[in-house]
């Protein structure tokens, strides 16, 4: 009879093991769903932006390093105060470059600036497609294109 009791105890423990496993799985599922909901909310909040420029380095602190600028579909970059992205630096032309979102990708075009526009260290000769994470160098200001 002790054998029977042991068997039943073992069975209970085995089912317990499965139960803990499922408890764990449901815990994960709950967390996943919660994050999905909050992710949707943050996405809604930042949905207006199709991308941003994070300022990595800025000698004159205009724009300030560490800031990130929300972008519209068409952005002019230059020392002209009417530029979408206003850059205060002696090495930057008035109308320096144009950053546009066309279809599925971002493009940068140099507008005949004196010192040129660089993407990841390469000078831009014609409109160039960008990826998120690419680094732009406008004068001495370094900025990174981000989602």
């Amino acid at each position: 009879m002790t054998g029977e009791i042991l068997r039943i105890l073992l069975l209970v423990m085995q089912l317990g093991f499965l139960a803990v496993l499922y408890l764990l799985l449901f815990g994960f599922a709950r967390s996943l769903l919660r994050d999905l909901r909050s992710a949707e909310m943050t996405q809604e909040a930042s949905q207006s932006g199709i991308g941003r420029l994070a300022v990595v380095e800025s000698p004159n602190d205009e724009p300030a390093a560490g800031h990130s600028i929300a972008l519209g579909p068409i952005n002019s970059i230059g020392r002209n105060v009417n530029s979408t992205v206003y850059v205060e630096d002696d090495f930057v032309s008035g109308s320096h470059a144009m950053l546009t979102f066309r279809g599925r990708s971002w493009y940068i075009e140099d507008l005949g600036s004196t010192n040129g526009t660089y993407v990841n260290g390469h000078r831009v000769e014609r409109p160039v497609a960008l990826s998120f994470g690419d680094e732009l160098m406008i004068g001495r200001v370094r900025m990174r294109l981000e989602r």
Binding site: L18, Y22, L24, L32, F132, G133, R147
Partner: peptide, 29 residues
Amino acid sequence: LGATALLGLALVLVFRGLRTAMLARDDFS
């Protein structure tokens, strides 16, 4: 039951990895 739970856990890991990818700010990440 148990084997499906194991597959479920693997799926959780995959989803979290993909979520990490979706939230990353740059294409390389």
